[in-house]
Design a protein around this nucleic acid. Structure first.
Lengths: 235, 235
DNA sequence: CGAGTATTTGAAGATCATCAACTGTCGTGG
DNA sequence: CCACGACAGTTGATGATCTTCAAATACTCG
């Protein structure tokens, strides 16, 4: 209760992700609302977890009672139709959350696109500190809201945009999360997910996606294109 | 502060919607979490408001600091693309919420499809009672979550379903909110929104919607179809 | 009843899907 | 180090679904 020792830490913190003090996504997360006392509590309570590529953090239909914050790596969120068709409803990048609420049946599956690291918070923890840190619940509400807004943008994309518009919107979306602005204002961004995942996110077939990418490249909107990265022209 | 008089009420409560005791959507709402003291507070604080057909409860881009609970009627939620295309992201029926969080710029517009009645709660109110009623914030989180799940279902619909599948899903959706199960298991449901709104929800053109409806009727999935209602065959 | 709008229906065209073949990339093992 | 196999991605040709443009019909409200 009283000690502030950091269980997983060596003295020199060889892994920068194992201490909250050095956490790269902390300002964006709930942790920003925690006082020093709660933060110490967090460092004792929570578990950091590695998830290897392809593994699920939670499965559609299964119970989940934890909140995960993605620290490193990326995930896809997907839902299945009865007949096996699948729709990707979103991607997670560092700083994003899953499991804002405990539930008996997750609405979607979350699978790692690459080897990743997450922080794991049992929801019990939030209930426990809720009275001391009222800001935490507000932050959960806020995060739920931004998820909802992202979903609405996705709805607009699927409902009203053409194939090429969808692809462009998607690339900008990824770039905003994990892209780097290069010299000349061009943006280079990794694409950790395979083409099929992008297609399933955009409501397009693989081939249509490929053609749209080719077309955007010919038009100059895409400067460079490879399997795992894109460079977008400065607008 | 101390009196429990209900401002808008006559003795015999001529309008059943003007007292929380008689509110038809109360069990589904936040109010279910309120203690008698808070409920009394609610009856003094909140305003019941009529919204005439076509009027907006909130506008995309404008500030909003209130939560509204729909008591009677229906709304459409919509977002605009820069070029004027519009996408309907959802409909509200009695018991549904808008404005789960205060914001400087609403993500969408909410317009009445018919003359409607809402309960209006300034978010200040929730902050004020948060410590007494911890359940209220949890309920807001939960509600945000179900909104998110609905949005995800919408995403699946738009991303993976054919025109006819979309129309069928939509009709079931409405039926679940405001439909009546008739004899024989058939479901009759009103359609308070015009065809164009349905099309804009489903990501289809007006004509395609109309044809899909006609086709579903021919197949027998729709038993009866008029401008403002449908009867769905029992499955 | 009549004007104006909402909805349906028809015919032609475009976008995206499907089926199929080809090319590139990565990792493994000889 | 190169060769091979497997998988990921691209490209081509054809076709279906949905859109577009156009006109007719049905409703609703004054």
């Amino acid at each position: 209760m009283s000690s502030l020792t950091l269980p997983e830490n060596d003295c020199v913190a060889p892994n920068p992700l194992s201490s909250c003090d050095l956490c790269s996504v902390r300002e964006n997360s709930i942790c920003a609302d925690l006082g020093p006392r709660e933060l110490a509590q967090v460092e004792k309570t929570m578990a950091r977890r590695s998830v290897v590529k392809g593994r699920a953090l939670m499965e559609e239909g299964e119970a989940n009672d934890s909140l995960y914050i993605l620290v490193q790596g990326s995930f896809r969120l997907l839902k299945h139709l009865e007949d096996g068709r699948r729709q990707i409803t979103g991607f997670l990048f560092p700083g994003d959350f899953v499991g804002v609420r405990p539930t008996d049946a997750s609405a979607y599956t979350a699978e790692a696109l690459e080897d990743s690291r997450v922080c794991h918070f049992p929801h019990k923890f939030f209930d426990a500190i809720a009275s001391d840190c009222p800001g935490v619940k507000d932050r959960l509400i806020a995060r739920g809201q931004t998820e909802y807004h992202k979903a609405q943008d996705h709805i607009v994309l699927l409902g009203k945009k053409t194939a090429e518009e969808r692809v462009e919107s998607f690339l900008l979306l990824v770039a905003r999360s994990i892209g780097d602005i290069g010299e000349s204002g061009a943006v280079k961004t990794p694409l950790p997910m395979p083409r099929q995942d992008i297609a399933d996110y955009l409501g397009l077939r693989l081939e249509t996606l490929s053609r749209s990418l080719a077309s955007l490249k010919k038009k100059g909107n895409i400067v460079e294109l490879s399997r795992h990265s894109v460079v977008l022209a400065a607008r």
